[in-house]
């Protein structure tokens, strides 16, 4: 059982929805980023999605891409991202961390070496956007064997015929992408998302968490009310990008988590 499995079991026992926050590792710099990440659990974040910077984030919008560029310009690397997670783990051994990014930096490091390092750094799960089930042999299966969850994205284009394949090697939770599009673009609507979540839940016992297009406490509540939880990324990252003090960023995160937790 990973920290992710334990967290969702605990939330279920409490009858609470999950709130998941995404931040880019090293944005706007290593120290500030670490301070934000350390403050997330106190701001009501149940699962941390830690963005791994990449030069060509083809599923992300301008907000996340700019955050990745800021991080890379500050010398952020895969190794430093894992260092950040390891440092966080020194004071928090329960909040799950999901590393979210693209395959090339991982492939460049070497899958086996990466998995050993990630596990040692206290990473619990992986979301790798450009690895669909067709490429499971690359990282998904080795990651599961190494004891890391591999969290798959399901999308509005994942039809009933394809859904079993998407769910087959998924663990931890299912990340439902609420819109066809990139992060930080269109707005998710609970009326559209509800039936889709129900469709996925009918096919799996895993929690179904919804992300993309959620940017206010109200949206966070509405989406969490029709699913097992909500993810917010771009809205938080844009506050960091605007140079808001860490305390203000965390206050905003708290308002979003309150939204999800009140659902």
């Amino acid at each position: 059982m990973t920290r992710i499995d334990a967290k969702f079991a605990a939330l279920k026992a409490e009858g609470k929805k999950a709130f998941v926050a995404y931040v880019m590792a090293g944005d706007p710099d290593y120290d500030t980023s670490l301070e934000v990440v350390k403050g997330l659990p106190g701001a009501g974040v149940d699962v941390i999605e830690l963005g791994l910077p990449f030069t060509d984030p083809m599923a992300d919008g301008p907000t996340i891409q700019a955050a990745g560029q800021r991080a890379l310009e500050q010398g952020m690397t895969l190794q430093r991202t894992l260092d950040l997670a390891r440092t966080f783990r020194e004071t928090d051994d329960t909040t799950p961390i999901v590393l979210m990014g693209y395959y090339n930096p991982i492939y460049s490091r070497g899958v086996d070496a990466f998995l050993a390092d990630a596990k040692a750094a206290g990473i619990d799960g992986l979301i790798v956007v450009d690895l669909p089930p067709e490429e499971d042999a690359e990282l998904c299966l080795p990651a599961q064997a190494a004891g890391l969850n591999f969290i798959r994205l399901a999308t509005p284009t994942t039809d009933d015929k394809r859904l079993p394949r998407v769910l087959q090697n998924t663990s931890g939770f299912v990340y439902y992408v609420s819109i066809t599009g990139i992060t930080g673009a269109a707005e998710a609507e609970a009326t559209d998302v509800g039936p889709e979540v129900a469709r996925i839940k009918a096919a799996t016992n895993l929690p179904v968490i919804v992300g993309f297009g959620i940017n206010t406490p109200e949206k966070s509540r509405n989406i969490a009310s029709v699913s097992d939880g909500a993810v917010v990324g771009s809205a938080i990252v844009s506050q960091i990008g605007a140079g808001k003090p860490v305390a203000d960023v965390l206050t905003f995160v708290k308002s979003l988590s309150d939204g999800a937790h009140s659902a």
Partner: peptide, 20 residues
């Protein structure tokens, strides 16, 4: 069938694009 030429090629895209 996996779209590979040796180890090269493949289908490294997001799930949204995969059905397309």
């Amino acid at each position: 069938e996996q779209g590979r030429f040796g180890i090269f090629g493949g289908r490294f895209v997001s799930e949204t694009l995969m059905p397309l």
